[in-house]
């Protein structure tokens, strides 16, 4: 297992990578514990914590009542009391029930106290659509948290980030929210046997290209990479950037790419109005406007609560085809 580092690579999934990260953190630091709804005996709504209750027991893998506000608030208090809690909120939609604790306490106490207290808390939650879970389990509300000074917001898209962001988040002295895309949990792949902590500050170029920059994060990364592959066959070489950190945004990586490609499309599963995409576009406009050869564009979810029926749900979400078409429009003038 993860504490027995080996060379080579092994087959894993996004879910297993997160589990390995939690397990490793709990083995390495007795202050770390996991708390949330059905994380213990049940094994986690998305089976992320399966087996941990049996291994670590009910004190360190704590099943909570359906009381988001108090168990997130208790995570804040426990962090203040010297522990290193990992709090799992079952779904981002449920996190609205504890938004008070996150926004009014976790994000503010350091500032209100003039720097006397810091809150080393990690909150994990599932986000995103694609599993036909309808309008109360499928939304991408990360932007609500990315809006808030005082917390860090990250979104692992790759197996390496699923495996490595948690350890770094636990080392961070401040609250870190980790958004795991529900559609990625089953995603399989190879991961280095010694995969470990990764930075949680920087955006990463996932595919090199010189014609256009595609900026995305989380569950939309793979659709965007597919779009970039298809575009390459049509002679458009897209660079794909995975934001990874939604707050703070790694502007340097974004701007460096956009200044080279002079075109940018943002792909974001959130709704367009007030979206992260809007923020990314605003920053590019502010700082690289004169480098642009085309208007900035974005692909977001349709502005409807996510529907249940599969064809309707898919119609509401960013799709590879939509991304391809939106990118092509950025080159409209070249074809005129």
């Amino acid at each position: 297992m993860s504490n027995q580092r080996e060379s080579g690579t092994g087959e894993t999934t996004y879910r297993e990578a997160i589990r390995a990260a939690i397990r490793e953190a709990m083995l390495e630091d007795p202050r770390v514990f996991l708390m949330g709804e059905d994380v213990g005996r049940y094994g986690g709504c998305y089976a992320v914590s399966k087996g941990l209750y049996e291994e670590f027991g009910p004190e360190r893998v704590r099943d909570t009542p359906l009381s988001e506000s108090v168990f997130v608030g208790a995570g804040i208090g426990a962090a203040l009391g010297g522990m290193r809690p990992i709090v799992e909120v079952m779904s981002i939609n449920f996190s609205l029930l504890c938004m008070d604790q996150i926004v009014n306490n976790a994000a503010t106490i350091q500032h209100m106290s003039g720097g006397q207290f810091n809150i080393p808390l990690v909150i994990r939650m599932a986000t995103g659509a694609g599993l036909q879970l309808a309008a109360q389990h499928s939304h991408s509300l990360e932007v609500l948290y990315a809006h808030i000074p005082g917390i860090r917001v990250v979104a692992p898209a790759t197996l390496e980030d699923a495996r490595g962001m948690l350890a770094t988040a636990l080392e961070d002295p401040d609250p870190v929210l980790i958004f795991e895309h529900a559609g990625l949990y089953n995603r399989p792949g190879q991961i280095a046997a010694d995969a470990g902590a990764v930075d949680i500050d920087r955006a990463v170029v996932r595919r090199k290209g010189e014609d256009v920059t595609l900026i995305t994060y989380g569950g939309s990364l793979y659709k965007t990479l597919d779009a970039a592959a298809a575009l390459a066959e049509q002679g458009i070489h897209a660079e794909v950037i995975d934001l990874r950190s939604l707050r703070p945004l790694d502007e340097a990586t974004l701007l460096d790419s956009v200044r080279r490609t002079q075109r940018a499309v943002v792909v974001d599963e959130g709704w367009r109005s007030g979206s992260l995409a809007a923020e990314v576009m605003a920053r590019i406009s502010e700082q690289a406007f004169y480098d642009l050869d085309a208007p900035l564009a974005r692909v977001c979810s349709e502005e409807v609560p996510i529907p249940y029926a599969k064809h309707m749900e898919q119609a509401a979400l960013p799709q590879t085809e939509t991304i391809i078409n939106t990118v092509k429009k950025c080159f409209g003038d070249r074809n005129d």
């Binding site: 514990f33 208790a74 804040i76 208090g77 426990a78 009391g81 010297g82 604790q101 009014n104």
Partner: peptide, 16 residues
């Protein structure tokens, strides 16, 4: 809003 903090501080005390 401050009540859950005390619950968490108490949890830390109990666990330690």
């Amino acid at each position: 809003g401050g009540i859950p903090l005390s619950v968490g501080l108490a949890l830390a005390d109990k666990m330690q």
